[in-house]
Structure formats: C-alpha cells, structure tokens
Design a protein around this nucleic acid. Structure first.
Lengths: 160, 160
DNA sequence: TATTGTTATACTCTATAACTATA
DNA sequence: TATAGTTATAGAGTATAACAATA
C-alpha cells in the first residue's frame, strides 16, 4: 500500500516533464484528436453515427451528385472502404445512389431530405461539443489552432 | 470522358470551400495526424516499430521502473492492450520485466542498452520527419501549434 | 488499357470482460 | 474488496487485391 501510494504520486498531472512524446507534434495531434473522438458518439441523439459516416454524409450534402470515387478522394480513404459507409447511409434513408447519364459505371450520390436534416442536427451537436472542448483556449487561440491545422493540411493536399 | 473531366475539375486543390468538415477542429486534427502517421514506419531504418510501440518504449526509457498500469495510464490506453506491446518490446530485447520487492503483483519495466539506443535512433528519425512535414509552416507557427495542442491536452488531462 | 463500383480478405488498433495472484 | 498483469474475444477501421461492367 505504501509503495502503491508512491507510484500514484508519480502520476504527474497535465503534461509530464519526463515524457519525451510531448515534444512530438504527431503525438500531440493524436492525443488531441482523441479528445474529440471519445465524445463523438455520446453527444449525438437519436441514431449516433461514427465519424467516417458523418464525414461522408457531410460531403454528399455539400456536393450533391458527387461520385463514390471522388468522395473517397475527398475523404482520403479507399473506394473499397467507402462502399459499406454508403450502404449504411442508404439503408438509413439518408442518401440515394442515382445513375449518371453518359457513364453507366458511375452512380452519383444525393442526400434525401432526411439526410440533410440528419446532417444539420449532427453538425450542430458536434459544433457544440467542439465549443465545449475548446473552451479551455481563448477564442483567439482556437481560431489560430484551426488556421494552423488548415494551413498544414492545405500544404500537403494530395499526399494522403 | 467529357463528364469525367467535368468531375475531375471539381476536385478542388487544398481546402475545398464546399467542404463543411474543414470547419471542424476534430476533423482537421485527424487529417493532420494522418500526415505524420502515414510516414511513421517508412522513415525508420532497420526494424520499424509502430507508433504505440515507440510510445511505450519512450516512456520506459524516460521513466525506468515504470509499471505497466502506470504506463497504460500515461499512454491513455487499457492495461490489457499494453501486454502485447510490452511482449513485442521484450522479444526484441529492448526492455525487461523485473519484479518489484514488496509487491509481487507488480513487474517494473526497464530499458536495455539496446532499447535506449533504439529509442534514440527512432526519435531522431521521427524528429527529422516532423521537421520535414512542418517545414510548410514558419518556425513561429510550428512552435505555436505545438503549444496550443499541449495547452489543450493539459487542460483535459485525465479525461482520456 | 483504364476507371467505377464492388467483394473478399486480412491486418491493425482498441475496448470489454473475466481470470489469477496478490494486496 | 481492490489492484496488477494477463487472456480471450469482439468490434472498429482501413488497406490490398481481384473482379465485372463500362469507358
């Protein structure tokens, strides 16, 4: 018990000084992302959808008629992995596959009214959650963080 | 072909204006992390180790004698998931499990000389890779990004 | 020949629950 | 009763390879 207490005392709160991982941007990105990921489902009502399903729905709502190949490119995932995601969205009645005149290989994706509503509702819940998580930063810091991440991503667009 | 070209033109380079995901910090964290994750193995020589194995080794080197439970807490993962990671590190000869006098339930973890060398070598490769990826930001921006991520994490310490 | 959507497959990563031996 | 390490197991998540239909 005495030794257990001693070990517990070594749990340094916050960012530990003797943790070399804290100096790596990649590690901080991963752990920071987990703050958002771990609450992603629980902040949603009705039928919670995982991040990748929400992402696909978001693009289909913003770009109605997008094809699966282009959607996969936008999301940075493989075409094959997108199939199950689209299946799930279609099964829920949130989007439809529609043939494209002139190219019978392709099926364009269109959101249903229910899909648009689902997106709006989910985005709202996620934005509220983000606000909460980011409340420990000043508005200026949050704005700066977002801008830096976007700049980093934009400079590496197409590498993923 | 004509329609294909039309679709291709819609692949907006960089951050697309019609992509609502780009406004979410969580999404930007995920995609940014993937820039580091996707090159994590390929920048290493000899025997590349995945992120979670490197993370565990790094903490054991920095905190020799750490127990598995405390290591799991530090890394934000479950004890059960750590077992295979420690097994792999021990099999490679990079750390050793040692009994702790006074509590026979516990086994403390100590890095071997080879383990310390492996950590130093890997960290060096990773830092070089980070420098490369972050070269699209100014030094001031990189410093700011790291500080913001650390502040965010520190404010949520213990929630993971 | 190349591309779209698809299936099959496998591998990584992680969490939950339960067990054992200790405390 | 609680904790440390472990095992078994299952579920996400993702990538690779191959296929049929079409360009």
């Amino acid at each position: 018990m005495e030794r257990a207490a001693w070990r517990r005392d070594n749990d340094v709160p916050g960012i530990a000084e003797d943790n070399p991982l804290d100096a790596l941007v990649g590690y901080n990105l991963k752990r920071s992302y987990m703050l958002f990921r771990s609450t992603f489902l629980s902040v949603q009502q009705d039928t919670p959808i995982p991040p990748r399903v929400f992402s696909a729905l978001a693009i289909v709502v913003a770009q109605p008629g997008v094809t699966q190949s282009n959607l996969a490119r936008t999301l940075g995932i493989e075409r094959s992995g997108l199939v199950a995601i689209i299946d799930e969205l279609q099964r829920s009645g949130w989007l439809e596959r529609a043939p494209v005149p002139g190219d019978r290989r392709v099926q364009a994706l269109f959101p249903t009214p229910a899909g648009k509503a689902k997106f709006t509702e989910t985005r709202s819940a996620l934005e509220h959650n983000e606000t909460e998580i980011l409340s420990v930063l000043t508005p200026s810091e949050t704005k700066s963080l977002l801008a830096l991440l976007q700049k980093l991503r934009a400079a590496h667009a197409g590498e993923e």
